[in-house]
Design a protein around this nucleic acid. Sequence first.
DNA 1: TCTGGGGTCCTAGGACCC
DNA 2: TCTGGGGTCCTAGGACCC
Length: 419
Amino acid sequence: MRRATALIDGNNFYASCEQSIDPSVAGRPLVVLSNNDGCIIARSAEARALDIAMGTPYFKVHKKLESLNVIVRSSNYALYADMSKRLMNILRTSSEQLEVYSIDEAFALLKRPSNGNLRPWAHQLRAQVYRSLGIPIAIGIGETKCQAKLANHAAKSVASLCGAFDLSAETDKDSWLEKVAIEDVWGIGQKLSKWCRLHNINTARQFRDMPSGKILSKYGIKGLRIQRELLGYECIPFTQKPLPKKEMCVSRSFCRPIHQLSELRQAVASHVIRGGEKLRQHSQVASTLTVFARTRELRPSSCKQAVTTQINPPSNDTSVLLDAALLLTEQIFDPSYAFIKAGVLMQNLDTTKFMQQQLFSVPKTNERLLSTIDELNSQYGQNTITWAASGLEKPWEMRRNRLSPAATSRFKEIPIAHA
DNA sequence: TCTGGGGTCCTAGGACCC
DNA sequence: TCTGGGGTCCTAGGACCC
């Protein structure tokens, strides 16, 4: 039995989520902004048609959007994460194995039916997801992940394919690869695609057929893998269970520059609290903690932009992490500068299962307290219960002026339908 | 007069992804 | 006035070891 790899993703995922929970904006041009309402990170199909570019700073196009009657939303990660969970659950039941690759996409391992035709499966799955979540998806099928990515690209950009495309079933693969610009090949970014263009390599097919030695010397093993994958040899393995993380980071820009230590402490504390939560979710502990902060003005190199400390024994206990982080915050603060962003970085992560036990010290971690806090927050929404160090008002917190309700994950915010 | 070869580990920085 | 946030992998170079 031949196997196939599919790449399935949500079309304009964030924008589609917003349209799915609010019928009044369905079918209308809509954009979603990044954190702090900074720039455009998702556009509905209708907004794309209006030629609104991805990544544009909001303040630059805000007038234009208004005049074009475009709906604008702040990013609502509580909503997107919940929709993602639902999407992945459906995909899991429709594939042999599933690798969740990002919030809106997953690779699926499939058995090819005896007649080789996976199209009915793909169209049935698209219909099912749309019926359940109101979100359109695209499905690309190939022999390797790279091929599945390319097929997915075609499924989205060629209207007659209706959102699903099986590259392996094509007799003339070359003509499809020829249509894919080098910039659109998975793993080839700005730098490499520029180099390729300079060497007259303009399409996926040309990249696949170029001398591998040239790729190896320019881009190393990573480039070679892409080429082999395009040829149909699996080089990027399918991994069902994500490897444990090596580091985690929580950082945010402020809605306005900060001048006071008390505010910087609150911000760092908020990030540490979220960081601890993430560590516990993944059953990991950190042994290195870094606090970093960016100032509006450039600081001389003698000023520290980041300070690091060791957590010994490694921990995911918020109280332990907070103690360490707040000390570091004092070291990084300087009243003569305005701070515009702060964050915490947790590194040298370890799985709690393999944690070294301390011989002489009694562990301070109060696991029951922490898991109760986590449970309450997961059930009633983030920060239902938290540490006072993060502050109550948080006047520095990022802008989210156009936030939609947490319609699928908070009882209070469930949409109400009027008859 | 002359100064090896091979290895590991760590870190910083680059490139890429979503 | 105003331009996001969170990751991974790879490579090169330095420090160190025998």
